[in-house]
C-alpha cells in the first residue's frame, strides 16, 4: 500500500499541491485524474524522489519514501513511465529492458572481466527474462531493433516492459495514452489490463475521462492541487464538483 498523507508542494510562492491524502492499493488499477495543470505529475515526481515534498508524508508498505533518491524508490518496488516517453533510443529493445534489470543481475564487479560462469549465466537469464517481458507487450520479434525505430504506441509498450523489468509491485503510469490515436489507445488499455492481471499494482494518471472510467477500480480527482473527489468510477462521474472541474460551471448571469 502506498500511503500519501497531507502531501504539499510549493515552488516559491506557488502552491502546486495542498493537503493531498489518499491510499493506493498494491493490486488493481487506481486512477488519479484531473484537468491539465492540476498537479498530477507532481504527485508522481514526489513519490519517485525526483522532487521533495514541502509538507506531508509518503510511505510504501510501511517504508518512508521522503528523502530517498529515485534509484532507492525503485529498489523498494515502485516503477514508473513518463508522459513524454523516455526510452533509451540508441539502445536496442532488449538492452532497454535489461537496463531495468540493473539491480537484479547479481554478479561481482570482476565477473565481466573474467567472463565468469556467474556473469554468463546471469546475463543469459536476464536476456531470457527480457525477451519474456517483451513478449508480454508483443515486441519480442523486434528485440534487436533500435528503440528509436519503434512507432509511438510501441515505444510506450517498450516503456512498460522496461519498467516491469525492475520487478515493481506498483507501476506508476503517467498519462499512458497521451498523444495516441484511438486504435493505439485500445491496444494500450488491453496491455494495462494484462499487466494488472499479472499481479502488478497499477496507479495511473490520466485526463482522458473515458479511458479512465473503463479501466480503473478506484479514482481520485485532483483540481488546482487539491483532492475534490474519491470513489468508484460511477461515483466520480456523477460528482457535481468533478463535472464542474471538467466542464466549467453554468453561470446563470452569463446567459442574460
Amino acid at each position: 500500500m502506498l500511503c500519501i498523507r497531507k502531501l504539499g508542494k510549493h515552488f516559491g510562492g506557488l502552491t502546486v499541491l495542498e493537503d493531498v491524502s489518499f491510499d493506493v492499493p498494491v493490486g488493481g488499477i487506481f486512477g488519479l485524474i484531473g484537468p491539465n495543470g492540476a498537479g498530477k505529475t507532481t504527485v508522481f515526481n514526489l513519490i519517485t524522489g525526483l522532487l521533495r515534498p514541502s509538507t506531508g508524508t509518503l510511505s510504501f508498505e510501511g517504508r518512508d519514501l521522503v528523502g530517498l533518491a529515485p534509484h532507492q524508490v525503485t529498489h523498494l518496488g515502485i516503477a514508473r513511465t513518463f508522459q513524454n516517453i523516455r526510452i533509451f533510443k540508441e539502445m536496442t529493445l532488449l538492452e532497454n529492458v535489461m537496463v531495468g534489470m540493473h539491480d537484479k543481475l547479481g554478479y561481482g564487479a570482476l565477473g565481466p572481466f573474467l567472463n565468469s560462469r556467474a556473469f554468463r549465466s546471469a546475463e543469459a537469464q536476464g536476456r531470457e527474462r527480457a525477451l519474456e517481458l517483451l513478449s508480454w507487450v508483443r515486441l519480442e520479434a523486434r528485440a534487436e531493433m533500435l528503440a528509436d525505430n519503434l512507432s509511438y504506441g510501441d515505444q510506450r509498450k517498450l516503456e512498460f516492459a522496461r519498467a516491469l523489468a525492475t520487478q515493481p509491485r506498483l507501476l506508476l503510469l503517467d498519462e499512458p495514452v497521451a498523444g495516441m490515436n484511438t486504435a493505439e489507445k485500445t491496444v494500450l488499455m488491453e496491455e494495462i489490463q494484462n499487466i494488472s492481471q499479472r499481479g502488478f499494482g497499477v496507479f495511473l494518471i490520466e485526463h482522458d475521462m473515458r479511458f479512465v472510467m473503463g479501466l480503473c477500480d478506484r479514482i481520485v480527482v485532483l483540481n488546482f492541487g487539491r483532492i475534490i473527489a474519491e470513489g468508484s468510477p460511477e461515483e466520480v462521474r456523477n460528482n457535481p464538483e468533478v463535472i464542474e472541474a471538467y466542464l466549467g460551471r453554468e453561470d446563470a448571469e452569463e446567459t442574460v
Binding site: R86, M91, E95
Partner: peptide, 24 residues
C-alpha cells in the same frame, strides 16, 4: 557488454530515466 556498460549508456541518454531503473 555488462550491466555497467548498459548503465553508462542509459545515463548518457537519459539520466532521470536511468535513475528510475534503479541505477545509482
Amino acid at each position: 557488454r555488462s550491466r555497467t556498460g548498459r548503465a553508462f549508456e542509459a545515463i548518457r541518454e537519459d539520466e532521470v530515466a536511468a535513475s528510475l531503473m534503479g541505477i545509482h
